[in-house]
Design a protein around this nucleic acid. Structure first.
Length: 643
RNA sequence: GCUGGCGUAGCUCAGUCGGAAGAGCAGCCGCCUUGUAAGCGGCAGGUCGAGGGUUCGAUUCCCUCCGCCAGCUCCA
């Protein structure tokens, strides 16, 4: 019986029984066949050399598609394993998947890899690739599989744990052989090792078996593979560019902040430039909170341990909290990891009526969390940081409208900071541990969903990933180089009002519990600034730039005039510096560029006599002889915050 | 927390197989008086992350601590 093969354009073409993916691809075109690394039949990926198992929708997976690269990388991972096993007597191997932009493989060679190990492994891989060994697929029974990998405990464990979703309901395992090397693998693979044109190993690191710190630690080697040397080059170049944006590096270069080791890990100090940047951001936060009807509150940095007991933090969050402080004879105190209990106290400070609700308490609250030492990472993961935190207390009836408002709020804020691509996660009720009433969960989840639908933000539902105390929305942004960052969060809470026995008086003079919405719009101010620095590569829009303009006198005799120009700019609210150094003009211009100051104003003889400046605004050309008043008006306009 | 790699001047980095610590930039002082990305000369700057050990002698070797970097499922 000939196969009825449907092409992506809908045409159906007959192919003889036993035709392979490569046969079909070749019949379509030789270029396509050359670019092919695998095929898909009804969505299932198959090796090129495998006879098509039946009729279906046929697609060619080419080497420069995401799926194709993933096949390349997976095959490269096999070659890596082959090389390591060749080179290291007694080595065993665990898993080696393709990942975004690369691949890795986990090994146990009885010792860690050092950077010096990578070179020889790469050479061995090059040898295997040059030999152009074919990858051959075989299917074995579970028993046979266990026999083949009897000496490799991790492979054995994988076979034993294979679920019904795997090949043949888990009764059959597939393996790939090339030249004596055998790996357990679902496939598909490229036809032969020679198809790997551009492979590079990047680094080694420890990694726990199955990601579990109670399991043995394996040694992982990371690498990357691309369809061509050029694509590999481009990728390495992108890595370099990302490195240039590193907020820790830019933070030092632009003199924004530092992490003095004397203070301890994860604790930042803000220098004047960073302080100005941060002030602009926090001022903006206050303005927009006020706009959306939030009240400002303030709370201390520590509180009695009892309150953390009541809130549940000591039961669920103690690992991340700094240990208690006890003065002789008095109560134990804890530094705050969150602001919620304080805002709850403010709620409780008076008898609340339904007429008071919703109550929205906002605070730039600094919290401290003892993050594991290995995860501390500049501003993006610090141990002391400030949340633009709010807690909204409202009735159940008000909940949908409040949630929609919170989402509108965070989207406006993120857009104002130059992010325009969003993705949201809607995390729903966990299967097992949860509190509150089922219909309340459903109502809240539906409200969050409705708010997301209305906003037009694409979202995915993270089934069961909500906290035990309520569903939530996390908003992610894409930055200038396409990376995804989690920023804002809007979180329902059905447990704190209970734990603290919050009440309000209803129109019927009954007592009822309010519900509570936690929300952090920046997430953490520190982290947000870290992301902003990387997004803008340190070249902030003018309203955020610590120094917005610099006046550069051409020679000493222009310094008085430069000061006057600066003064009149300052009067218009522009943050301006004068470069009164003794250097040449070129040097001062260069320094201004390095400081990423948005506007440069050069003043020389003709400018003094004509009341003009040589104006260069970032992104546009120099304009010699611009009238001073015109320049100032223009810059004052450009320096205005979005709201 | 765990594994590995690191820690030398404010910054970026040389160097010492155990025997007097270096460069560039930045800083300071002079000269130059400058028109859009580095003018020239000089000076100063380091308990070689901290503590302990081995040694005649430690920045170098060993141990502990502090700090930094990468990674620690994107599941054959």
């Amino acid at each position: 019986m000939p196969l009825q093969i449907t092409y992506p354009d809908g045409t159906v073409v007959e192919h003889p029984d036993g035709s392979t993916g490569l046969d079909v691809a070749s019949s379509i075109g030789s270029r396509l066949a050359r670019a092919a690394v695998a095929v898909k039949l009804d969505g299932e990926m198959l090796d090129l050399s495998r006879p098509l198992p039946g009729d279906g929708l046929f697609e060619v997976v080419t080497d420069s598609s995401d799926e194709g690269r993933s096949v390349l990388r997976h095959s490269a991972a096999h070659v890596l394993a082959q090389a390591v096993l060749n080179l290291h007597q007694g080595a065993t191997f665990a898993i080696g998947p393709s990942i975004t932009d690369g691949f890795y493989y986990d090994f146990d060679i009885g010792r860690p890899f050092t950077p010096d190990d990578l070179g020889p492994i790469e050479e061995e891989m090059a040898r295997i690739i040059a030999a152009d060994q074919p990858f051959i697929r075989e299917e074995l029974s579970r028993q046979e599989g266990l026999a083949v990998f009897a000496e490799h405990r991790f492979k054995t464990e994988i076979i034993e744990s294979v679920e019904g979703s795997e090949v043949g309901d888990g009764k059959i395992v597939s393996i790939y052989r090339n030249n004596g090397f055998v790996d357990l693998c679902r496939g598909p693979h490229v036809p032969s090792t020679g198809r790997l044109k551009a492979v590079k190993l990047l680094r080694s690191a420890g990694a726990y078996w199955r990601g579990d710190e109670n399991q043995p630690q394996l040694q992982r080697i990371y690498g990357t593979a691309w369809e061509s040397a050029k694509a590999l080059e481009e990728h390495l170049h992108r890595l370099e560019e990302a490195e240039k944006r590193d907020h820790r590096k830019l933070g030092r270069e632009l003199d924004l902040f530092s992490f003095p080791s004397e203070l301890g890990s994860g604790l930042a100090v803000w220098h004047p430039n960073g302080g100005m940047l941060r002030k602009q951001i926090e001022d903006y936060s206050r303005r927009i909170h006020e706009m959306f009807g939030f009240d400002f509150v303030y709370s201390p940095h520590l509180a009695k341990a009892d309150v953390w007991q009541t809130s549940g933090h000591l039961d669920f969050y103690a690992d991340l909290m700094y240990p208690g402080m006890e003065m002789d004879g008095s109560d134990e105190y804890r530094v705050k990891p969150m602001n919620c209990p304080f805002h709850v106290m403010i709620y409780k400070s008076a008898a609340r009526s339904y007429r008071d609700l919703p109550l929205r308490f906002g605070e730039l609250g600094t919290v401290y969390r003892y993050e594991m030492s290995g995860v501390v990472h500049g501003l993006l993961r610090a141990r002391g940081f400030t949340q633009d935190d709010s807690h909204t207390f409202c009735t159940r009836e008000q909940m949908p409208e409040e949630l929609a408002m919170h989402l509108e709020f965070v989207l406006m804020l993120l857009r104002d900071f130059g992010f325009d691509e969003f993705e949201a996660d809607l995390s729903t009720r966990p299967e097992e541990k949860w509190v509150g009433e089922l219909d309340m969960w459903e109502e809240a989840t539906d409200s969050l969903k409705a708010a997301l639908e209305a906003s037009g933000v694409p979202y995915r539902v993270a089934e069961g990933e909500g906290a035990f105390y309520g569903p939530k929305i996390d908003v992610h942004v894409k930055d200038a180089i396409g990376r995804r960052w989690q920023m804002s969060t809007i979180q329902m809470d059905f447990t704190l009002p209970d734990r603290f026995e919050l009440e309000f008086i209803t129109p019927e003079d009954a007592r009822e519990r309010p519900v509570m919405i936690h929300s952090a719009k920046f997430g953490s101010v520190e982290r947000f600034i870290g992301v902003l620095i990387e997004h803008y590569a340190g070249a902030f829009p003018m309203w955020l730039a610590p120094v917005q303009a610099i006046v550069v006198p051409v020679a000493d005799r222009h310094e008085d005039h430069a000061s006057k120009v600066a003064k009149s700019m300052r009067d218009r609210g522009i943050r301006v510096d004068v470069d009164a150094g003794s250097g040449k003009l070129g040097e001062k211009i260069r320094n201004a560029h390095l400081r990423k100051i948005p506007a440069i104003m050069v003043v020389g003889d003709s400018d003094v006599s004509n009341e003009t400046v040589g104006l260069t605004v970032r992104g546009s050309d120099e304009r010699r002889g611009t009238p001073l008043g015109e320049a100032i008006t223009e810059l004052a306009e450009a320096a205005k915050p979005p709201r």
